[in-house]
Design a protein around this nucleic acid. Structure first.
Lengths: 95, 95
DNA sequence: ATAAAGTAGTTTATAAAATAAACTAAAATA
DNA sequence: TATTTTAGTTTATTTTATAAACTACTTTAT
């Protein structure tokens, strides 16, 4: 009947992050922050959760003297996102 | 870019309840419990939240000596569910 | 008649999650 | 050189989800 929804993805902000990364393949922290409208603190926490789960990789470096955090979705992340979207449909379609 | 997701509906169990009520128009507590696989306690709490928000109406009576709780989606509930589904699409479609 | 088990829930307590506020550290600018 | 800005992280607080415990009654078995 109703499929399980990956709790890691069933979160507005983390879902938005994954949705962005699915399309752009790589994105900077500040870009994600701007696109999602999230606060830096919240975004930092949620990105870390996605990283811990292996859904994204995070690369930290410097650009023009400033810290630069880049995020990239993993194969696992893509797979889990697709499954989530598929499972979500069981809640949206009228029976 | 990303639309706001009604936090009341962005919950696996409450969304399942609303999804059921959208299609059947009226359902008993035990029916919802069975279909969603939720515990009675959890379901009781979530149904109350949906009721408080005016998304459903709850009618309590007795049938064959046992308490009977019937739930029905409201016009407001239908509208909010539809908006939720619409807004959710902004997260699912690859840009 | 009464003890045990079952039905249909509600309330309370606990765990987990989301979020905001405060903080760090350095760079740019006035 | 003091102030503001950039780019974040960490910690604390609030909210949410969930499970455990409880209520109240009914049915069935003894």
């Amino acid at each position: 009947m109703f499929k399980e929804l990956d709790p890691l993805l069933h979160s507005q902000l983390r879902l938005a992050v994954m949705s962005l990364l699915i399309s752009v393949e790589e994105a900077e922290f500040t870009f994600i922050k701007e696109k999602t409208g999230a606060t830096a603190g919240n975004l930092s926490v949620q990105i870390d959760k996605l990283k811990q789960a292996g859904y994204i990789t995070v690369n930290k470096s410097f650009r023009d003297n400033y810290p630069l955090t880049q995020c990239k979705i993993t194969k696992k992340g893509i797979k889990c996102f697709e499954i989530y979207v598929e499972n979500l449909k069981s809640y949206l379609k009228p029976a």
